[in-house]
Design a protein around this nucleic acid. Structure first.
Length: 324
DNA sequence: CACTTGACCTGTCCGC
DNA sequence: TGCGGACAGGTCAAGT
């Protein structure tokens, strides 16, 4: 079963995009017939709205903006979903329903390996762990059942994540959405754009600036550390002290790190489908993240961990000198 | 307005 | 062995 943060990792852009691709393949076109949810924190809409705008509607598309999933429905509403750190969406396609007695509906748990549409965790697990334990479990917040009997579980141990039904037309007007910076894997994210966006945070550390979703959308703690290592910039360096040429290097590192992880996310998703375990997870090729004490792949010095911007931060002290 | 810190949560790990 | 505290980190609210 799930056992904590070093087996679970927080979804950032590549993980959420992987989830999006999985869901897009698996649930578009499916009709919702039942929704159950418990904590209002995880799903604050009143049940009347759920009945009116989610139940009996069909999934028409799954989009992503930054780390937010946008599950569009035929009702004109969108199920806006943020996994935060420990959220995961698990799609179970082949749990069958017991219908023998007509009243005791019960899925055959684990009769087949579930297909994960993309879980939040992608690293550091034990090869023998089952990918998904019997669901629902105590972290299950929402269960969406489709007409064909397949189900989507929203699990979130720490209840930071949420799902929320919002009129599709209003989604871009959500404050959070309006503030977001550019998508780093879109063509309009150029080095010049990054430089310009960073000017709003020029008196803070580059790490804090990269975590600021209004500067660039979708970067979290892992990719901030990895891209800064790639660009050989110390995370505590003030933005105003970084030369434009270094910003340009950082820009290309952000893109290559995200793309590399996205490739791995795809392979991880395939592994889930094939019930092959968690081989090929991101952390097997992370250069610094959670690798304190290990040798820097570039120079061999031991990687160290420190705190920058209130976050655990991993650097090579030789490749990323102070005031780089 | 720019910036920092604490709160939100649950579960695990570490030191005593 | 039990227990308290630190820690994991995305985002927002509150404070400087």
């Amino acid at each position: 079963m799930f056992s904590g943060y070093n087996e679970y990792d927080m979804p950032e852009l590549p993980e959420v995009e992987t989830v999006r691709r999985g869901l897009s393949r698996l649930i578009v076109g499916k009709k919702v017939i039942h929704v159950s949810f418990d904590t209002p924190k995880s799903f604050p809409n009143p049940s009347g709205e759920v009945d009116q705008f989610l139940v009996s509607t069909t999934v028409t598309a799954v989009h992503r903006r930054a780390k937010v999933l946008l599950i569009e429905l035929s009702s004109g509403y969108t199920l806006v979903t943020h996994l935060k750190m420990t959220g995961q969406l698990v799609y179970i396609a082949n749990g069958r329903w017991h219908m023998e007695d007509g009243k005791n509906k019960k899925p055959i748990a684990n009769s087949h390996m579930p297909i994960a549409a993309g879980e939040a965790r992608f690293g550091g697990g034990h090869p023998n762990d089952s990918l998904v334990g019997e669901l629902p479990d105590k972290s299950t917040r929402v269960i969406i059942t489709f007409e064909d009997g397949t189900r989507l579980f929203f699990n979130d141990q720490r209840k930071f994540g949420w799902m929320r039904l919002i009129p599709t037309i209003s989604v871009p007007e959500i404050d959070f959405m309006k503030r977001l910076g550019p998508e780093p894997l879109e063509d309009d994210f150029t080095a010049e754009v990054l430089y310009e966006r960073l000017q709003r945070r020029k008196n803070t550390s580059i790490k804090a600036a990269l975590l600021d979703q209004s500067v660039v959308a979708g970067i979290g703690n892992i990719y901030a550390d990895e891209s800064l290592w790639g660009a050989q910039i110390h995370p505590a360096t003030l933005v105003r002290d970084i030369l434009p040429s270094a910003i340009s290097t950082l820009h290309s590192e952000i893109i290559s790190v995200l793309k590399l992880s996205l490739d791995k996310g795809g392979s991880t998703d395939k592994n889930y489908v094939d019930a092959e375990g968690k081989k090929g997870s991101y952390l097997t090729f992370a250069n610094v993240f959670r690798r304190e004490g290990q040798a820097c792949p570039r120079c061999g010095r031991a990687i160290i961990k420190l705190r920058v911007a209130g976050r655990g931060t991993h650097i090579c002290p030789q490749c990323q000198p102070i005031l780089g």
